[in-house]
Computed example of a mutant assay.
Amino acid sequence: MQSALLNRARGAAFKATRPNGCSRSVVVVRATAEAPVVERKERKLGPLERGGTLSGDQAAGKDAGDKARAMATGVTAAATILQIVDGRFVDDRWIGGRWDLNQFKNAAGEVDWDKVIDAEVARRKLLEDYPIPSINEDPVNFDTSEIPWWAWVKRFHLPEAEKLNGRAAMMGYVLALFVDSLTGAGLLEQQESFLGKLALHICVFAILLVRSSADLDKYKGLIDEATFYDKQWNATWDGVKRPSEAESQ
């Protein structure tokens, strides 16, 4: 029961509601899911959680996310509300068909690109769930290319690279121990041999290709798609002799 409630809470990242007593066509979407309330026993915070001698935002670390800052300060970030009113996307930060970057600046006066990405993702998700017509009077002038490349790298590529690097290291170490137990060749000997280098590259590329179990379904779909027309062609000859079979007889 508890796991079902947790899955339901995780899947409610975008929950649509309609305000009571509202005559206009209004769709309100909460862009962040509310965390489920789970009773936990109080325990003493570790040094990393306490932030050492620091306090407040500084205790969360450099370039900390909303979750880390909430743990350090005890203040949870407010959920973002996006709306579609009378067939148009409405948000206080959406001005002239683009995000007003001045409203995304942090305490240092710099644009928090993570919040811009979150807002754009929420906007596109809202329009995907509730499509609206495109009109010349309300153009979309915002382009994701305006977001610096380093913001994309820090937000998506670095965490993914760190995860894949850790998986490759763990799998490589386990396989090296397995080879060592079978052949007696140590880690250094395996690194210097051709077969050892080949096995290392196979391990790394295999992890890059299969990052999760969902990738297996993706590759299976690609294989089915690649052989789809061949299956259709063979199906057209069911019950019919092919010219090549007639010649062989």
Rank of each mutant, 00 (worst) to 15 (best):
L188V: 11
Q191G: 05
D224Q: 15
E192D: 08
S213V: 03
D224T: 12
I202F: 12
H201G: 06
F228I: 05
L216N: 03
K218D: 04
C203Q: 11
L187N: 05
V204I: 14
L209T: 02
I207G: 00
L216W: 01
D230T: 09
L200Q: 14
A206N: 10
L200R: 15
A199H: 12
G221H: 07
A199G: 12
I202R: 07
T227D: 10
D217E: 09
G221K: 09
L187K: 04
T227N: 13
L188D: 13
E225K: 13
F205H: 13
E192R: 05
K220Y: 13
F228H: 14
F194E: 09
T227V: 12
A226Q: 15
F228T: 05
S212F: 00
I207C: 03
L195D: 14
D217N: 07
S193N: 04
L195R: 09
R211T: 03
Y229M: 06
F228P: 03
K231Y: 05
K220N: 13
G186W: 06
T227K: 09
E225Q: 14
A206L: 07
Q191T: 10
I223R: 08
R211W: 00
L222S: 10
T227H: 10
Q190G: 05
S213F: 04
I202Q: 11
V204M: 08
I202L: 12
G221F: 06
F228Y: 11
G196R: 10
S193W: 04
D230F: 02
D230I: 04
K197R: 15
V210R: 01
H201S: 10
E189A: 09
L198S: 13
K218Y: 09
D217W: 03
Y229L: 06
A214Q: 06
I207Y: 01
Y219C: 04
K220W: 13
K220T: 12
G221I: 08
A214W: 00
S193Q: 02
V204L: 11
D215K: 00
L209G: 01
L209V: 02
L209F: 01
Y219S: 03
L222I: 11
F194I: 02
S212I: 01
Q190P: 01
L198Q: 15
Q191Y: 10
G196I: 09
F205I: 12
Q190C: 06
A214H: 02
Q190L: 05
L216M: 07
Q190S: 05
L208W: 05
I223S: 08
S212Y: 00
F205Q: 15
K218T: 08
K220R: 15
I202S: 09
H201D: 10
K220H: 12
Q191P: 07
L195I: 11
L188G: 08
L198W: 14
K197F: 04
E225C: 06
I207M: 03
I202V: 13
Y219T: 03
K197W: 03
F228W: 09
K197E: 06
S213P: 00
G221S: 14
Y219G: 06
H201M: 11
L209C: 01
T227R: 09
Q190R: 06
D224V: 10
D230Q: 07
L187R: 07
L209A: 05
L200A: 15
V204T: 08
E189Y: 02
L222C: 12
L216S: 03
E189G: 11
